[in-house]
Every structure is written in structure tokens, then in C-alpha cells.
Design a protein around this nucleic acid. Structure first.
Length: 517
RNA sequence: GGGGUGUUAGCUCAGCUGGUAGAGCAGCGGACUUUUAAUCCGUUUGUCGUGGGUUCGAUCCCCGCACACCCUACCA
């Protein structure tokens, strides 16, 4: 969109010297058609890619209003319709044709009679291709078989498509192309479009829920001088002008808590985090988190609140909080179960006695059976957590809060007032996957400084994901942060659950892929 | 990172433990004024992912590589 655009016809040589990814004879044929269109446009001084046709109706609206009407009552009314969209189906006969166009809302059929639009245009239309963008003006009617259609009186080719669409019946089957060329997937798959609409509805519902509860939406840095707020490997980058190393954020937590110090009391952020780790059906290097912090609340309040938020999101996108995932029911409508780490092991791996679970050496040996070698510095709580992950986590199909995480793996969480070795922290699991993580925040600056020091020791001992010491964050806490609850919800995973998607790539428009070739 | 499976026409897919490939759709030409994945007649199109090896001969057997998907590991 430069200032150069005008009414003059640009001189475009069809294919000369331009790099094309994958030319083939079908594309060559369409380029040839486009060349003819350019010639014709030039001689008639009209644009090849016109932008003066303005549709006035959407397919879905027309279907909703008139699809049920009788032919006898609808046809005589000659209701005008002006529509535009991509031609998805085309059935040409000698003197009349049908074409189905698709717009952002759905599909509608066009009836194109030679005697109505003229012989020259009809001949031209015969050579238009599936995938071309067309505009049509006409009157609504019902065909013999009762399909709502537009009897076309004016037909325009608005955009010539050079690449063929996938086979019209089977659609796009190649998973790789669905991810790499999402635009093709969106053109051809109702299901894909529905998934991303649902994603948008989920995010909108969450935002509304937060606003209704008087949270302030904020944006904090994505480029961090010190990566913090989570245990993860960061992407490292470099700022040239400042000549300094920077890190893509792994979590917004420490900045959001600075805002609580600043007095906002209720803040949230929906944005991307970046973690330099492996890919899987549950992991993309950049993923979306909603983190929120509320002063004068604790983890018990957070669990109630998070539950309501997720329920509201499901209802907004699906109309119900009783979902189906991978063929099994997931019920978000009832209160979520709450279990301690040890309680969950006892429930899902009852072969262990409480005595065994409280024996650090036993648990450490047991973990070896699962191929897990715990750090030497790991305490009982961390060992129990590892055993939980090996035995119970994947079985938490219905929504379950796991509570009371050990202090040593929760360096930002407030310790229990009665049991100093555990924190007021929870993680939410649904369909065996972690969906959310929250806790009463640690607001004792000196304790936080000590926890950071312990993390630095762990880092020196070989724990690559241990946290860095963030001196400014400590300084902020030293001004005093009110008692606060904070939680992060993995939006991608929540959308996977709500849209019944097996892979995180199905809910990210442009998932990370290796370079082509 | 480790393991498994896959890659054949533009698309969707066949292809017999080895003899250099087929169908449907799309395209092109023709017929057809109410079709529904329109139909009917004719017809074009392939470095069989890529590089080696075995063989008289490889889409097919063996090895490497690329990419994808699934499982697994780290994590959310």
C-alpha cells in the first residue's frame, strides 16, 4: 500500500525472473489466463484486480433469513442480494451454470444464466477457476431442489487465483501443508475456521471476565535483561545499540508483581512467552499465557476464581461447560477436585504407603525405576513431586487442583504459615495436562532474596533452569507488596481442551516449523 | 535429544518381496438453461522426497540425508 498506486495500469511481465516455490502446469495455465485478463483490462482501461465492488450481504445472514422460505413466496419477491467470496464449486452447463462462493460467514450458490449476463461474460466465466474471488449482484430465489441461490444479473472477477485449491471433496489432507500454509487450510476446512473462531471467543471471554472483576489489562516487556518468573531455558538475543544481551521472556510474573507493588492491585496480561525447549503436541516455543495478580487474595481464592474463568471461557466458546475431549467427557461444570501431591499419588498409585512416600531414599530409588535421576540437592518434597509426575499426573483427566508444592521448586511462592517446607501453590490439571499454575505470592523481600540465592546455588550445581537473581525485583518487594495471589493459565492448552484439538499446533495459527527444504 | 512411521501427477490416493507408473478430482477441447463432489465424450501432466549402494534392471531391497507425523525426554 504505497502512495504510488493510481489508476494507471501497472506493467507486469507474467513470470519473468521471479522465484516461485513450486511452479507447475496448473499454475502456468492460470498465469496464462491472467495474462489474457491483463490484456483485456488494458484495452478496456479497467483494472485487473478491481476494488470497487462492495458486497452488501453475507452468506450466513442470507441463509439464516431465507433458507427456510417457500420457493413460491420467496421467488416473486425478487429480493436483491450483493455478495462476494471465493468460488469453491463450479458446475458449468451450456447456457447456464451454478457456482458456490464462500465468504467469511459461509457459502451461497450463484445461478448464472448466459441470457441474463450476456454471452461474452458467460464465455469468460466458463474459464474462471475454483479459488477465484468473485462478486455477484442478483435476486434471491430457490432452485428446483430448494437451495437458496442468487440469480445473478451482474458478475465480476475480483481476484484471479493462480494456485489450485486442494481436491474439492477430500480437502487438504497433508498435515504439514495445513500448518505451513494455514491460509489454504482456512480456505478449505470449516473445522479449522471453527477452531480459531473458538480461540478468539475464549480469549474475548477471559478478557471480559477479567474486566468484570476489575482487573487492569497491562503489557509488560517481552525483552528481558534477566529472564525470570519461571524455570525454563530462554531464547537469547542481542540489542545492538545498547550492546547488551537480552532474553525473550519466559514469563511476565516479576513485572506484573512490580505493578502490584505500584498499587494497581489487580492486573492481568494475555501475551506470548518464549521457551527454548523441545516441541511436542503440547509445546510450541512461543505460547500464550494469561497471568493475573490480585492483591489481598490467596491461593484458595485463586482456585475458585480460575475455575470460574475457565468455565466462562468454555461456555462462551461452546455453550456448555461439559466438554468432550478425545472422545471422553470433561466436566468443567462441577467444582474442581483438590488434592495434595501425596494425596494424588495415594489416589492414583495406591501401591505406595504413606510411610514409603515420606521416605526420601525410597522415593529416590523408586524414581530410578521410571528412569528419573533426581538432583542430589533434591529434598523430599521435590522427590514426591517427581513421583507424582510419573505416576499420577497423566491420569488427572477431570479438572483437578494439585496443591501444596514444596518450597524448593516454588521460589516465588509464599510458604505455608503452618508448614514452612510447602507453599500455598496449586497447579490445575485437565486431561492429564497442566493448564494453570498459581500461588499466594511471596511478598517477604528478604525471604525472596534468600530463595534467589538458593536458586543460584542450584544453577551452579547444574540445574540449568534454576532462576537468576533479579535485584530490581527484590528492590521492588522491599518497598512492600501487599499480600497477593497470582496465577497463569496456558491459553493454547485451554483452547486445545475446549476445541477438542489433539495438538497445540491445531490451535496456533502459524505453529513453529522447521525451514522448508 | 532418542525411537517408530511416512514422502508416488497441482490435489486425494492405488501400485502384486524388482521389469522405469495408474484412478478420481482439477486443467484443456466438446455436449448440456435448475446443478448439488453435476453428468457424458475426448485429452494433457510425473527427476515415484533427495544422495549413494546392490542388481542386467530399483517407486519397490540396503545405507545416508531432508521434511512431516506419532511416541518419548525437558517444560506450560
Amino acid at each position: 500500500m504505497t502512495a504510488q498506486s493510481s489508476n494507471s495500469q501497472p506493467q507486469v511481465e507474467s513470470t519473468a525472473g521471479e522465484p516461485h516455490l513450486d511452479e507447475n502446469h496448473v499454475i502456468a495455465e492460470r498465469r496464462e489466463k491472467l495474462r489474457h485478463l491483463r490484456e483485456h483490462a488494458q484495452s478496456s482501461n479497467t483494472p485487473v484486480f478491481p476494488n470497487d465492488f462492495k458486497p452488501e450481504h453475507k452468506a450466513a445472514d442470507l441463509q439464516a433469513r431465507y433458507a427456510e422460505a417457500d420457493k413460491e413466496t420467496l421467488d416473486p419477491q425478487e429480493i436483491p442480494a450483493v455478495v462476494a467470496g471465493r468460488m469453491m464449486l463450479k458446475r458449468v452447463m451450456g447456457k447456464a451454470s451454478f457456482a458456490t462462493i464462500q465468504d467469511s460467514t459461509g457459502r451461497i450458490q450463484l445461478y448464472i444464466a448466459r441470457d441474463e449476463i450476456g454471452e461474452a461474460l458467460y464465455e469468460s466465466f466458463k474459464h474462471w477457476d475454483m479459488g477465484d474471488i468473485v462478486g455477484a449482484r442478483g435476486r434471491l430465489f430457490k432452485t428446483r431442489t430448494g437451495e437458496l441461490s442468487v440469480h445473478v444479473t451482474e458478475l465480476r472477477l475480483l481476484t484471479k487465483s493462480l494456485r489450485p485449491l486442494p481436491e474439492k471433496f477430500h480437502g487438504l489432507q497433508d498435515q504439514e501443508i495445513k500448518y505451513r500454509q494455514r491460509y489454504v487450510d482456512l480456505i478449505t476446512s470449516d473445522e479449522t475456521r471453527a477452531t480459531f473462531r473458538a480461540r478468539s471467543q475464549v480469549v474475548t471471554a477471559i478478557r471480559q471476565f477479567m474486566n468484570q472483576n476489575e482487573f487492569l489489562e497491562v503489557e509488560t516487556p517481552m525483552l528481558h535483561p534477566i529472564p525470570g518468573g519461571a524455570s525454563a531455558k530462554p531464547f537469547i538475543t542481542h540489542h545492538n545499540a545498547l550492546d547488551m544481551q537480552m532474553f525473550m521472556r519466559i514469563a511476565p510474573e516479576l513485572y506484573l508483581k512490580r505493578l502490584i507493588v505500584g498499587g494497581f492491585e489487580r492486573v492481568f496480561e494475555i501475551n506470548r512467552n518464549f521457551r527454548n525447549e523441545g516441541l511436542s503436541v503440547r509445546h510450541n516455543p512461543e505460547f500464550t499465557m494469561m497471568e493475573f495478580y490480585a492483591a489481598y487474595t490467596d491461593y484458595q481464592w485463586l482456585m475458585d476464581f480460575t475455575e470460574q474463568c475457565i468455565r466462562a471461557a468454555a461456555i462462551a466458546a461452546k455453550g456448555t461447560a461439559v466438554l468432550s475431549y478425545a472422545g471422553k467427557e470433561v466436566d468443567l461444570s462441577k467444582p474442581f477436585e483438590r488434592l495434595t501431591i501425596v494425596g494424588a499419588i495415594q489416589k492414583y498409585a495406591p501401591q505406595y504407603s504413606l510411610e514409603q512416600l515420606n521416605d526420601a531414599e525410597f522415593v529416590r530409588k523408586e524414581l530410578l525405576k521410571f528412569g528419573v535421576k533426581a538432583f542430589d540437592h533434591a529434598g523430599l518434597g521435590a522427590l514426591q513431586l517427581s513421583l507424582f509426575e510419573e505416576t499420577a499426573e497423566s491420569q488427572l483427566w477431570q479438572p483437578t487442583y494439585i496443591i501444596d508444592y514444596p518450597v524448593e521448586v516454588s521460589p516465588l511462592a509464599r510458604a505455608s504459615d503452618t508448614q514452612p517446607e510447602i507453599t500455598e501453590r496449586f497447579e490445575l490439571f485437565i486431561t492429564g495436562r497442566e493448564i494453570a499454575n498459581g500461588f499466594s505470592e511471596l511478598n517477604d523481600a528478604e525471604d525472596q532474596a534468600a530463595r534467589f540465592h538458593a536458586q543460584m546455588k542450584a544453577k551452579e550445581a547444574g540445574d540449568q533452569e534454576a532462576m537468576f537473581y533479579d535485584a530490581d525485583f527484590i528492590r521492588a518487594l522491599e518497598y512492600g507488596m501487599p499480600p497477593t495471589g497470582g496465577c497463569g493459565i496456558g491459553i493454547d492448552r485451554l483452547v486445545m481442551l475446549i476445541t477438542d484439538s489433539p495438538s497445540i499446533r491445531d490451535v496456533i495459527l502459524f505453529p513453529h516449523m522447521r525451514s522448508e527444504q
